[in-house]
Design a protein around this nucleic acid. Structure first.
Lengths: 249, 249
DNA sequence: CGGGACGTTGACGTTAATCAACTACCGTGG
DNA sequence: CCACGGTAGTTGATTAACGTCAACGTCCCG
């Protein structure tokens, strides 16, 4: 283990070697190199493989009949797509950038999970983490203003890179991709980022890179903390009615 | 098995006996009766139990620091909360109505999954289903208009009851709860429902019950099909750019 | 009958979508 | 090297959708 070449390897999860690494050791998978903006899987199609992202970035999305797109998640190096499927793909998958992709046959995954407890645990943890990610995304879409959503997303990129305020963070996708993930328009994304720049929270070194100059403040906006963004969405919850201690156990 | 007493039992999943039933047979759990609007678990608190809902309804939610609430999901009879947690609760849980709740110790769940393959599969399926539910919710929050969201939610209630257009469907939660799940205000929920009534799509037999008089049309609105709701949210996706056949495999 | 929670409805204001023009930045080829 | 075209991004003007505020109705339970 040559010490700290670059912090590029880690992503997705906290300390442990990524679930993908574990799967790669235990389960034979087919590796492919795929160019940018290529379709890897289609929503609703029969599913027989779990996809691992070794390098690059993919987007997972659903579409409405009239062509609106929602990007459920972006998956980068170390991430898995399609775990726990019930026969059909939950969403379409496309590459955002050129990527190295591993295809694990669903049967091999199942067999691996059955006989190897470590694999089983790893998959469980990956599923749990994915659910947590979804809960965050839902709160963001449901109860944050446009500015707050963009701030939260920028911090996600920032945190993935290891929280280094000094070094610049890559924005690996287009404004349109960001917009379709955050439930706003690309114009709104652009305006929010430039507003943050004018406020001195970030610096856009170029269209695909940014520095976080005031992480704490950006984080308060992203969290949905009152008083930063003046007019924030109101939840319907009547504050008085929330009984906030556990009734039992 | 006395034939078809009421269709009340089924919910959550398709045909198979619910995951909860399977767990109840294999794993000892503590059953409690809980009144309406009681707190069962708190977001972020250490987690040592998986919760099963035997009767009644619970809401799972997260809050922003300034008190906005987002209800990630409602869980009814047969449903499970807290599967695949990594030590801390992903969200708070409260009863919506009086409910029968089972608490399964996390250790017992883990042990059961380790030695019983059927349990393991059942849990996997439950997790997969939960992810699917989240993807739907995300698309709804991110890319549907207020009316479309309400229509989609009403259809969810409708479908759970077995798609019977003739019998009236219960709305088991308040307008505020619906609003905090759909990312709109309670006034918007109220207006949307009454608009649907005026359009002849549904009939509100009383504040907590409705009939679906035109399921097909309601379904088209909910799906986000063009031309029904005039102005619908636009996704940022440039239609021309979507490469919609699989590039490989 | 009175109080309180829940729900509806209306008038108004704000946020963010829409529409549109314009700029920057490629890569390609004359 | 510069013209060309195409994609991505920015910015401004306008407006629709939805949130906000507020009044009022309804139901239920004591």
């Amino acid at each position: 283990m040559a010490a700290g070449q670059h912090a590029e390897l880690r992503i997705a999860s906290e300390g442990h070697p990524s679930v993908l690494d574990q799967l790669r050791l235990a389960i034979p998978g087919v590796v492919r190199s795929v160019g940018a903006d290529q379709c890897i899987a289609i929503e609703g199609a029969a599913n027989d493989a779990v996809i691992g992202v070794m390098s690059g970035l993919v987007r997972c999305f659903r579409m409405t009949p009239d062509g609106r797109r929602h990007i459920c998640r972006f998956v980068g190096p170390g991430g898995l797509v399609g775990l726990g499927v019930l026969g059909a793909n939950r969403h379409s998958v496309e590459t955002v950038s050129q990527a190295q992709i591993v295809f694990f046959p669903a049967t091999a995954i199942k067999a691996g999970a059955d006989k190897n407890p470590a694999i089983r645990t790893a998959i469980f943890d990956a599923l749990a983490e994915e659910l947590d990610e979804r809960d965050r995304a839902q709160l963001r879409l449901g109860r944050l203003s446009a500015d707050e959503r963009v701030a939260d997303f920028l911090l996600e990129l920032f945190d993935e890179r290891g929280r280094n305020a000094a070094s610049s963070n890559l924005i690996p996708m287009t404004r349109a991709d960001m917009a379709d993930h955050l439930g706003v328009t690309l114009e709104t994304v652009s305006r929010a980022m430039h507003r943050f720049q004018r406020m001195g929270l970030i610096r856009l070194t170029n269209v695909r890179n940014f520095l976080v100059t005031r992480p704490a403040l950006l984080r308060r906006i992203a969290a949905g903390d009152a008083g930063i963004a003046e007019r924030r969405p109101r939840s319907a919850l009547a504050m008085a009615s929330a009984p906030h201690q556990a009734a039992l156990m």
